[in-house]
Design a protein around this nucleic acid. Sequence first.
DNA 1: TGCAAATATATCATTTTACGCAACATGGGG
DNA 2: CCCCATGTTGCGTAAAATGATATATTTGCA
Lengths: 289, 289
Amino acid sequence: MDTRSLHFFLQLSDNLHFGRTSELCHISPSALSRSIKQLEESLGVQLLERDNRSVRLTHQGQLLQNYARDLLQQWDSFRESLLEGAHELQGEISIYCSVTASYSFLHDILSLFRREHPGIEIVLHTGDPAPGIARVLAGKEDITIAARPEKLPQSLAFRRITVSPLVFISSLSDISQQPCSATSKEWAEIPMIMSEEGPIRDHLNQWFSDIDTTPNIYAQVAGHEAIVSMVSLGFGIGVVPKIVLDNSPLKDKVSIMSNTPKLPSYDVGFCTLNKRLKSPIIKAFWSQL
Amino acid sequence: MDTRSLHFFLQLSDNLHFGRTSELCHISPSALSRSIKQLEESLGVQLLERDNRSVRLTHQGQLLQNYARDLLQQWDSFRESLLEGAHELQGEISIYCSVTASYSFLHDILSLFRREHPGIEIVLHTGDPAPGIARVLAGKEDITIAARPEKLPQSLAFRRITVSPLVFISSLSDISQQPCSATSKEWAEIPMIMSEEGPIRDHLNQWFSDIDTTPNIYAQVAGHEAIVSMVSLGFGIGVVPKIVLDNSPLKDKVSIMSNTPKLPSYDVGFCTLNKRLKSPIIKAFWSQL
DNA sequence: TGCAAATATATCATTTTACGCAACATGGGG
DNA sequence: CCCCATGTTGCGTAAAATGATATATTTGCA
């Protein structure tokens, strides 16, 4: 079945005359005759009774006439609706980031993006940013906000948002602690609240390894916000990007410790697969940054 | 648009893999690729985002996926319904005859035909049988019950039902009249109820012409039943097939006159166009007679 | 960084299909 | 009985689809 044959049939069923119909359809009478014949064969029923003098619809022909009229009209309007929707970008974009990131960076960007592309639905997942890049690599998310890893896989595009220093935090009651002057032995005693994974955890592991010490890990948690929360309750000290602290409702319950070990800064930005940038939707988002 | 392309697209949109899809569809990968590309061009929108490693549906592709699934399914079920209906004859057959004929001959024939072919709708028009043959010739009716004309047009098929003599009738109060013995002058006085047209009228015209007399036409009516009615009211004498009288509720109100002029008998039967007999519906009816 | 594998697409020769022209068949009307 | 109208079929050509191969590009891995 193709729409052309149906158009021919419809035209023919209206004026019941092969000659006139073939002119109206801009084909030869023979082509029309064959097209109708083929339609009849493909359906397995006779659509028209014809002799050399007259053409008339069979019952099945009348059924097809009604059906084809509807079908063609609906197909046309569907096609139009597709074209209308094509003028603006439509689809879905999924973003994975921490709660902090969604508060601090994302709000303005998303509201602007939403205004520019109202047809794109934004699916926002928040959680521990540590597995964000893995999720992007696995194709589970289009975009994540994450710290730039030491060696960025070639398949990833990274656009920095800001650089935030890592700070050691402790609860206000522990403010007297002076880790800087602490010995390795003392470090081994200090209870730590650590991420389960991610670059900060890697840095800390490295640093402890450098001073040949095994950290006393009080708790492993997922998400920077959880670290702040645990620290504020006095369970230990933790390391988070300063920007997390700035956006935390608990920032008055913890304090930044001074004279702490130097850790690399947290290079935070958007991250997506290079190949996904070919998608107009992702490209639109990326180019707006 | 043709269903083949839509099938390809549907299969592809399900497994999002050109290679596997081409195998499932029993075509080469290149043919599949071209078919999809062509579909996209005909719609004017991109349906799939593809790179060398992955294929994914665009928003428009998802819309088409849903639409095409419905369309193909509906088309299939429509096709099936056509085929189901094709096993029995379906359509319409129009019959034109007098009220008398519908009472006397038609009832049994139609009830049998209806039982044999419940899919055929019977459209019955009753009226003066005189124009019946003209209506058939003009294509307004499929079949008529009419008197066989003197010379049957070659395009007509005729199947006799019965032969009924023409009888002169008068009202009971006029029973004393003796037209047989009447002179031409007296015939010119007798009020006649005549059909407007038709073979009986032709016969009477001929007979009056033969005796060189102009009839005194009291009323021209359409339909044999109307003649009986007028005659029963005493407006004049009329000529009708005896079978009309036999079926008339007024048969006790009129009497058959004796010793009337000899007129040819009324040769009544079914009549249709020869070429219409090629139509399975008409043929089914005809062969049942 | 380079190589191998995977995959969609471009190219081209071949096959299939569609098309138009002309001839044919058939039935109606003068 | 001839002529016209009309749908259908044969046939040669043109167009389109197809499949095999080559190509480009990217990914994954060493």
